[in-house]
Amino acid sequence: MTTFVLIHGAEDGAWSWHLVEAALRERGNDVVAVDLPSEDETATWNEYADTVVEAIGDRTDLIVVGHSLGGFTAPLVAERVSADLIVFVAGMIPRPGESANEWWAGTGHSNLVRTGEEEPFYHDVPPALAAEARRRARIQRETPMGRPWPLERWPSIPCRVLVGRDDRFLPEDWSRRVARDRLGVEVDVMDGGHCLPLSRPVELVERLEQYAAACR
Rank of each mutant, 00 (worst) to 15 (best):
L69Y: 14
D58F: 07
Q210T: 04
Y48W: 15
L24I: 08
A131W: 01
S156W: 05
G146H: 12
R114P: 00
W104N: 04
A49Q: 10
V20F: 10
V31I: 07
A214K: 02
G164K: 00
T107K: 05
I7S: 02
R80I: 03
A130R: 09
W45Y: 15
H109Y: 11
F121H: 10
R141H: 07
Y122A: 04
V20R: 08
P171R: 00
P144C: 11
D61K: 14
E186A: 07
W174C: 01
R200L: 11
D30P: 02
D12E: 15
P96V: 02
A14E: 03
A10W: 11
E98P: 03
E39T: 06
G9K: 00
L85F: 14
E39S: 11
N46Q: 14
E118P: 01
E152G: 09
W149F: 13
S110R: 06
E54V: 08
V163F: 01
W149N: 00
F72T: 11
L24R: 07
D173I: 01
H109R: 14
E79A: 09
G108E: 12
G146A: 15
E47P: 00
V34C: 05
R216P: 00
L183V: 05
L151K: 12
S199H: 08
W15F: 14
M1I: 10
G108P: 09
A90P: 01
A137W: 07
H8F: 03
R200A: 13
E142R: 13
Y122H: 05
R176K: 13
H8W: 10
R165H: 09
L62A: 04
D12H: 15
Y122M: 04
E47H: 08
A131K: 10
P120F: 13
L19K: 15
I56P: 06
P127L: 14
R141E: 08
E21Y: 03
P37E: 08
H194F: 10
V32A: 13
P197E: 07
E98D: 04
P155S: 06
S82M: 06
D61V: 04
E132K: 14
P155T: 01
E186Q: 05
N29G: 10
S110N: 12
E54N: 08
G146Y: 10
V31M: 08
C215E: 13
D166Y: 02
M1K: 13
E11A: 06
P201Q: 00
S199C: 06
R176F: 04
V113P: 02
E118L: 14
L62G: 03
V20E: 04
R59W: 12
W15E: 03
R182C: 02
E203F: 08
G91Y: 04
G57W: 15
V5F: 13
L62K: 05
L208T: 04
W104E: 03
S99P: 04
G57V: 14
